[in-house]
């Protein structure tokens, strides 16, 4: 299985990473190399094998559905690239 430039563009768009035309070419070759390496897995007979989800426990614990912290908006916002009046600021989304 090999990946072409258009596919790189498509997955880069899904991953929200801007890639240039030159990068697309390099990435297409590199990603194809990785995919041809993993191709080997198709030769393993996995009929009837359940996919492994966790190596430790099947059942995840549940805690009581209660608030355990909060009231720290300044801490939450302290690393934001842009904030105002207790909110994160992003570029305009709706015209």
């Amino acid at each position: 299985m090999s990946i072409d430039k258009d596919t790189v563009g498509k997955i880069a768009r899904l991953a929200r990473i801007r890639v240039t035309e030159t990068e697309k070419e390099t990435l297409a070759a590199e990603l194809s190399g990785i995919l041809s390496m993993v191709e080997k897995l198709n030769t393993v007979d996995t009929k009837g094998v359940e996919p492994l989800t966790s190596v430790v426990q099947v059942k995840l614990p549940q805690r009581a559905d209660v608030v355990t912290d909060g009231g720290i908006p300044e801490k939450i916002l302290q690393n934001a690239p842009e904030q105002t009046a207790g909110f994160f600021v992003v570029p305009k989304v709706v015209e």
Partner: peptide, 29 residues
């Protein structure tokens, strides 16, 4: 970036079972 892109690819519609689930089955083995 390379790893994010490979990960996005193997989890995308049409490849999820062939790549990701097959890898998780082999992981069980």
């Amino acid at each position: 970036k390379r790893r994010i892109l490979i990960g996005t690819y193997v989890l995308s519609a049409g490849y999820y079972d062939a790549y990701y689930n097959q890898a998780r089955r082999v992981r069980k083995l």
